[in-house]
Structure formats: structure tokens, C-alpha cells
């Protein structure tokens, strides 16, 4: 559950712990946990809160994080991705940055219904 800024910390720590337990190297962990932190915060700040799921892929070689919010959605994805885009008091490195720090990255957004971000990291 993502509601407060404490939940962002909990989410990224859970992801880091999960990867550490599977012996992933530190840099990979930091990169992905940072990406998760960005996305979880987005869900709270812009999506009015949401849920975050952590699971493994079938071959157990990737950690997958899915973050869903019920916010307004992103109207123009092409504009939201590049660095520099910012909606409300952001620096504009969030989405694009999170994508660069992930192995796989996918955003599904429906205006008025919410946004689902699915991201993965190699273990």
C-alpha cells in the first residue's frame, strides 16, 4: 500500500532486501531500488496513492515491480518520458530516469482511471 512518504521508504527497502537475498550486486540493487523509489513517489504525489507489488518472473532471473495508482493518468506519455518534463514541483527526471535505471519498463495509463508502471531488474 502506498499512501505516505514512509511507504516509499518501505517499498524501496523491500525491493533492495529482496535483491540482496538473491545475491544481486550492489550497484544493480541501488539502481533498481532508486527507480522503484521514483515510481512509488509518483504514485503518491500524482496518483493520490496506490499499490505496489513485488514478484519474480517464471525463470526467477528478474525481479518485477508493478505499481498501480488511481490518479488522473498521464495525458501525453511522449511528453512525460524525456528528462525535463515536470508536472507539479518535480525535477523532471523521474519517469525517464526510472526507465534508464530499470531493465524492463512499461507504463500503461488511462486518463481518468490511473497509471500502472511495470518495471523489472535482472537479479
Amino acid at each position: 500500500m502506498l499512501n505516505t512518504s514512509r511507504d516509499v521508504v518501505t517499498a524501496r527497502q523491500a525491493v533492495a532486501r529482496e535483491m540482496k537475498a538473491r545475491g544481486t550486486n550492489t550497484i544493480r540493487i541501488t539502481r533498481f531500488a532508486t527507480a522503484v523509489s521514483e515510481i512509488a513517489r509518483n504514485a503518491i504525489m500524482h496518483g493520490g496513492g496506490g499499490e505496489l507489488f513485488v514478484f519474480l518472473d517464471r525463470s526467477k532471473t528478474y525481479l518485477i515491480v508493478r505499481c498501480r495508482d488511481r490518479g488522473p493518468g498521464i495525458e501525453d506519455m511522449d511528453r512525460a518520458m524525456p528528462d525535463g518534463y515536470t508536472s507539479a514541483n518535480g525535477l523532471g527526471l523521474g519517469l525517464g530516469g526510472a526507465k534508464r535505471l530499470s531493465h524492463g519498463f512499461d507504463v500503461t495509463t488511462t486518463v481518468g482511471e490511473g497509471t500502472i508502471v511495470t518495471m523489472s531488474a535482472k537479479l
Partner: peptide, 14 residues
């Protein structure tokens, strides 16, 4: 600052 954090920040453009 830890090495992994430095790498990540640079990647984020910060």
C-alpha cells in the same frame, strides 16, 4: 557517498 549511489545519480543526470 557510496559508489553505487554516485553511479545512479550520474545516470539520473543529477
Amino acid at each position: 557517498m557510496r559508489p553505487a549511489v554516485a553511479v545512479t545519480l550520474v545516470e539520473l543526470g543529477m
